[in-house]
Design a protein around this nucleic acid. Sequence first.
DNA 1: GCTTGACTTGGAGTGCGCTCAAAGGTGCAC
DNA 2: GTGCACCTTTGAGCGCACTCCAAGTCAAGC
Lengths: 120, 120
Amino acid sequence: MGITIQEAARTSGLSAHTLRYYERIGLIHEVERDAAGHRTYAGSDLAWLEFLTKLRTTGMPIADMCRYAALRRQGPETAAERRRMLEVHRERVRERIARLNEDLAALDHKIDSYHAMEIT
Amino acid sequence: MGITIQEAARTSGLSAHTLRYYERIGLIHEVERDAAGHRTYAGSDLAWLEFLTKLRTTGMPIADMCRYAALRRQGPETAAERRRMLEVHRERVRERIARLNEDLAALDHKIDSYHAMEIT
DNA sequence: GCTTGACTTGGAGTGCGCTCAAAGGTGCAC
DNA sequence: GTGCACCTTTGAGCGCACTCCAAGTCAAGC
């Protein structure tokens, strides 16, 4: 029961290096070990990793993710605080998407002007 | 004619440090100097900076921006290549927005589940 | 003339998020 | 039982994009 670090790396899209690093800084809680001392990742670990990578790709700093992970380990009484963290983060993501859309429009405009240059 | 580096910093949203850094690495071409050797930024410099910051905030690496800047200095015969660079970049930006929207939806879902926890 | 303050330079330092190196343990195939 | 692949650890190193420092220049105000 539980998959190796290489399999977990392939599944999560992170490197084995990064998985160990995440555990070291407390982002992932103590992964189970087999008799040889090798890590074996459970389904719950993979689900958590998937959520973590969503936070990462949406730009949450590692430090905030650590804070979230610490709250999660403290138990259900921290649920409201975790929710607030996510809400604040969501707002930032929304702003970033809005900003990206604006800049994308400017980029479109610029590219159009290059096309115009080539035609004339 | 031309504004000081501090004013250019305020206008562009970059720091004076960063403006000098950008010039050093060739992102901005030799800014005019006054009698004292101080930089004086022209309107065209500010327009270029504004465009550069759009490239940055949309995630273009500095190295690519340098390449774009170098092509631009070479003159109009590089227009097609610059356009292609922007088109490639635009595609990446579109993908990133799409990915962010997906992750935003997942975040919404997660926040909803926290709300559900609190109600029950 | 002296202070003040904003500017100049080259090079070193910083923070983030990994990424790798070195040295060693474990278990399976032959 | 030897080789090999794959795992372990601690701690150092890296790439990016700045960011700052030290030492110096210059113009204006008193």
